[in-house]
Computed example of a mutant assay.
Amino acid sequence: MRKIVYSLTASLDGFFEGPDREIDWHQVDDELHQHMNDLYRDVSAFLTGRITHELMAKAWPAVAADPDATATMADFAAIWCAKPKHVFSTTWQSTDWNTTIHREVDVEEIRRLQQEPGEYMSVGGPDLARTFRELDLVDEYRVYTYPVLIGRGRPLFAPVDARADLRLVDLRRFGNGVTLQHYAR
C-alpha cells in the first residue's frame, strides 16, 4: 500500500509562511533542491489543495520550458509535470497537467488510491494536510526546518483533535543550515 507523506518547510519559530504568505526566507540551494528531486522522483502522485496546485501549475511548467533554468530546477519541473495530481477543491471546475479534481477527502477513495502501484503519495498544502491529519491518513512527516526566525505567520500545524505518535526515521543537516526531521507513525 502506498504511504502518504507530508513534506513541509518551516522557520525555526514554527511557521510555514509569513503573515502575507511570503516564503522568501526559504534557502533552497542546489544540494537541497537535488535532495527534493531525488525524493519526488519516487512520488507516484501529488495530493494538493487548490491554492498549492495553482501555485505549482503557474511556476513549474514555465520552468520546464525555460532554457535558462538550472539543471535542478528543470529536473524538478519535469518530475512535477509528469506525475499524476489529485486536487481537492469544492470550487474548481477544470484543470490540466494530468490532474483529477476531488470535491472532498473521502477516506475510502484515499484508501483505494493507496492500493494503486507506486511508492508513496505526497500530500501538500496546509489546509489539505490538516484534513488528512484529522482523518488519520498521514503515514510520514518530513519537516525541513530553515535557520530563520520570521516572527509571525501561519503555524506549521493547525490545531486538530487527533494525536499521532511518531518515531524519528532520519535526521539530516544540509550545508545551508536546513535540517530535515523525518518521522513515521
Score class of each variant (00 low, 15 high):
5 V>I: 13
5 V>H: 00
7 S>G: 12
9 T>V: 05
13 D>W: 03
14 G>E: 14
14 G>S: 04
15 F>T: 10
16 F>Y: 10
16 F>T: 03
17 E>D: 01
20 D>I: 05
20 D>A: 09
25 W>N: 00
28 V>F: 14
38 D>Y: 11
40 Y>W: 11
42 D>S: 13
46 F>G: 06
47 L>G: 04
48 T>K: 11
50 R>I: 13
52 T>G: 08
53 H>P: 13
54 E>R: 05
60 W>K: 01
60 W>E: 09
63 V>W: 03
63 V>C: 12
64 A>W: 10
66 D>I: 08
66 D>Q: 15
69 A>F: 15
70 T>F: 09
80 W>Y: 15
82 A>T: 15
83 K>G: 00
86 H>D: 06
87 V>N: 06
87 V>A: 06
88 F>I: 08
91 T>V: 03
92 W>C: 02
96 D>N: 11
103 R>V: 00
104 E>P: 03
106 D>S: 02
108 E>G: 05
108 E>I: 01
109 E>Y: 03
110 I>R: 02
111 R>E: 06
111 R>P: 07
114 Q>V: 11
114 Q>N: 02
116 E>I: 08
121 M>Q: 01
123 V>T: 05
125 G>E: 04
127 D>W: 00
130 R>M: 15
130 R>Y: 09
134 E>M: 03
136 D>V: 11
137 L>M: 06
137 L>F: 06
138 V>H: 13
140 E>N: 07
141 Y>P: 08
141 Y>F: 11
147 P>N: 06
148 V>H: 02
149 L>N: 05
150 I>C: 02
151 G>A: 07
151 G>M: 01
152 R>I: 08
155 P>F: 09
156 L>C: 15
159 P>E: 03
163 R>W: 13
166 L>P: 06
168 L>A: 12
170 D>Y: 02
171 L>A: 02
173 R>V: 02
173 R>Y: 15
174 F>M: 15
176 N>T: 14
176 N>F: 10
177 G>S: 08
177 G>H: 09
179 T>H: 14
179 T>D: 12
179 T>G: 13
180 L>S: 04
182 H>T: 03
184 A>M: 14
185 R>C: 09
